[in-house]
Design a protein around this nucleic acid. Sequence first.
DNA 1: ATGCTGTTGCCACTATCTTGCAACACTAGG
DNA 2: CCTAGTGTTGCAAGATAGTGGCAACAGCAT
Lengths: 144, 144
Amino acid sequence: MDAALRRSRRAGLRNTAARRAILDELARAVGDQGHLTATRLHHALLARGLTVELSTVHRVLAQLVELGIAHTVPVGRTVTFGLADDAHHHAVCAGCGDIRQLPAAAVAASVAAARAAGIEADPSGHPTGVVVYGRCRRCRTTTH
Amino acid sequence: MDAALRRSRRAGLRNTAARRAILDELARAVGDQGHLTATRLHHALLARGLTVELSTVHRVLAQLVELGIAHTVPVGRTVTFGLADDAHHHAVCAGCGDIRQLPAAAVAASVAAARAAGIEADPSGHPTGVVVYGRCRRCRTTTH
DNA sequence: ATGCTGTTGCCACTATCTTGCAACACTAGG
DNA sequence: CCTAGTGTTGCAAGATAGTGGCAACAGCAT
C-alpha cells in the first residue's frame, strides 16, 4: 500500500489525506473480499470517521485505475475496485457478487483469443483482464 | 428469433407485441455489433415507430436473460444485451465498448479455473460467461 | 515562506434502472 | 365466440450511481 502511494507520487499525484484513506481502505478490503464498489468504499471511510466526498472517491479511484494501481471488475450494473497487486484475474458470482481470484496462467488462452479478435487485454495498468461470470454454489442451490 | 419466441412461450411467457419487438430488435442487432444497452434498444424501438415503455424493455430483457434466451455483457457501468444464440463468449474494448466474440473452446481453461474456484459458469441460461476486457487497436493508439 | 498547480468539498444534475398500481390483452376453456 | 384468469404493460414516482463546474484549499518544489 505504501508502494502504491510512492507509485502514485511518481506519477505526479500528491500525497493527500483522501488518497491515503482510499488506498488504505482498498488494502483493508483485501482481507475481506478484495473488492469494493465506490459507494461501499465511501461508506467504509465514513464509518472510520474519515470525511471524504463520494465524488472524490470516484475521482481518486479513476486515477488509480488509470495508473494500474487499482483494477476494476464489473459486477451487475456497478463496478468494483480492488488493488492490482498481482497479475490475477477474476471469477464473479452473478448472484451474490462474490469475487474469487483466478491465476493468470489459467486465463492465458482467453487472453490470446481476445488478442486474435483485436482486443489487447494486457497494456499494463489499464482497466483490463478476464472475468468469468457464473454462480457460486450457494446461489446455484438457493432461489431457483 | 422465432425459436426464441416459442421458447419463451413454453416458459409461460405470453406472445405480446412488446416481447416480439424486443426479440426482433435483438435479432437485428446481431448484424451490427451484436449487443445493445436497454436504453439503446428502447431508442431503436421508438425510431421504428414501436411504442414500448423503457421499463417494459427492462422487464422483458430480465426475463429473457433469466431464460437464457438473452445474455448480458457488462461494459463500463452499464450492461449490454445480446441474443444467446451460441455458446460464444466476449472480448470487450474498455475504451469504446466494442464487443467481439470468442469461441467457447478458447475460454474453456478459464471456465475450468472458475469452476475450481467455486464459480460455475455454465448453468445453461443464466447470466454467465467469460469476458475479456481490453483495448481495441484504435483505443490503444489514440488517446493513450 | 511562497507560489504553482493538483485536489477537494459542495452541489446541482444526468443517466440508468426499479417499483407500485390500475388498466389491458393473451390464452385456454367452455 | 365469449369469458375468466393471469401475465403484461404504461405511467409516474423514486431510488441509485456517477459526473461536472467552481471556488477554496493544500502538497511540494524552490
